[in-house]
Simulated scan of single mutants.
Amino acid sequence: MATREVRWTLRSIKDKMLIYEYWLQRNQSDAYPRKLERLFNKSMSITAKFPLAGKPTELENIRCRLVKDYKIFYRINDKTIEVLTVWDSRQNPKELRI
């Protein structure tokens, strides 16, 4: 079983930073943002080994992993997993753009 490399797009990194900033300001602590970072990385590490573990979406070759209240959308490539966006699932789904 080959492990693919996980590559975070610029957009997905920006999404994560906005989430971390929100929790940092809300809690006045970096404990929860650090926990989310570990959970996101752990989820994508598992995905690198088992790329089909995520739920299929309506879009071809794009899957989704749920981590707490966040959905991580990714594309499976030959040698990589490309993380496209990190979405707070409590938002209006009509506003989601992948």
Rank of each mutant, 00 (worst) to 15 (best):
M1E: 11
A2K: 15
A2H: 15
R4I: 05
R4C: 06
E5G: 13
V6S: 09
V6F: 12
R7T: 13
L10K: 09
R11G: 06
R11T: 10
S12N: 06
I13E: 13
K14H: 14
K14I: 15
D15E: 06
K16F: 14
K16Q: 10
K16C: 08
L18E: 15
I19P: 01
I19L: 06
Y22G: 03
L24V: 00
Q25L: 03
Q28R: 10
Q28I: 02
D30S: 07
D30L: 03
A31N: 03
Y32I: 12
P33L: 01
E37V: 02
E37Y: 02
R38D: 03
F40L: 07
N41V: 05
K42Q: 07
S43N: 05
S43G: 06
S45P: 03
I46Y: 03
A48N: 04
K49D: 15
P51C: 03
G54D: 06
K55I: 04
P56L: 09
T57E: 15
E60W: 04
E60N: 07
E60A: 08
I62M: 09
I62R: 04
R63M: 12
R63L: 12
R63N: 14
R63S: 13
C64M: 13
R65D: 11
L66E: 15
L66Q: 14
V67N: 05
V67E: 04
K68S: 11
Y70S: 00
Y70P: 00
K71F: 15
I72W: 15
F73V: 02
Y74N: 05
R75F: 07
R75Q: 14
R75V: 07
I76H: 01
I76Y: 02
N77Q: 08
K79M: 10
K79D: 11
T80C: 07
I81S: 05
V83F: 02
T85Q: 06
T85L: 07
D88F: 09
D88Y: 07
S89W: 11
S89E: 11
R90Q: 13
N92G: 10
N92E: 13
K94Y: 14
E95L: 11
